[in-house]
């Protein structure tokens, strides 16, 4: 039983670090800030969640604290990425030239002052 738990924990830790790496790779490779946000939010969130759950399973005494951490990451990461995306759009960061549509352009709510 304990061995199985440790195996699951090890697998989760490995998957978590793999996704953290893939998220950073996406942040490095993607062409504009919006695509980078997609990688920087999704992959790192799932990576951190899986890694923390793995650590919580490997050391069951830490499980409650690990759950609080996971909840925290799950709630704050989308909010901060939304804030970055909105700020870069309003400060005039252009979309990648390969982008095919921009509905935000014709709308007042998306306009802002300042230059990027």
């Amino acid at each position: 039983m304990n061995l199985l738990l440790q195996g699951v924990a090890g697998t989760l830790i490995l998957i978590g670090s793999l996704f953290l790496f893939l998220g950073a790779l996406g942040v490095y490779r993607f062409p504009d800030v919006y695509n980078r946000l997609q990688a920087g939010t999704k992959s790192t969130t799932l990576g951190a969640l899986s890694l923390i759950l793995g650590v919580g399973l490997a050391e069951p005494a830490w499980l409650p604290k690990a759950l609080v951490l996971m909840l925290f990451i799950l709630l704050t990461n989308p909010v901060s990425s939304h804030a970055i995306g909105r700020a870069s759009y309003k400060s005039g960061y252009p979309l990648w030239e390969g982008s095919i549509v921009d509905h935000c352009q014709e709308h007042d709510a998306c306009k802002g002052g300042g230059e990027a």
């Binding site: 919006y34 695509n35 990688a39 982008s99 509905h103």
Partner: peptide, 14 residues
């Protein structure tokens, strides 16, 4: 992210 040519087709929709 891993694909060598990065198949992206991005845009902003409402």
């Amino acid at each position: 992210a891993l694909h060598p040519r990065m198949p992206l087709n991005p845009g902003i929709v409402r």
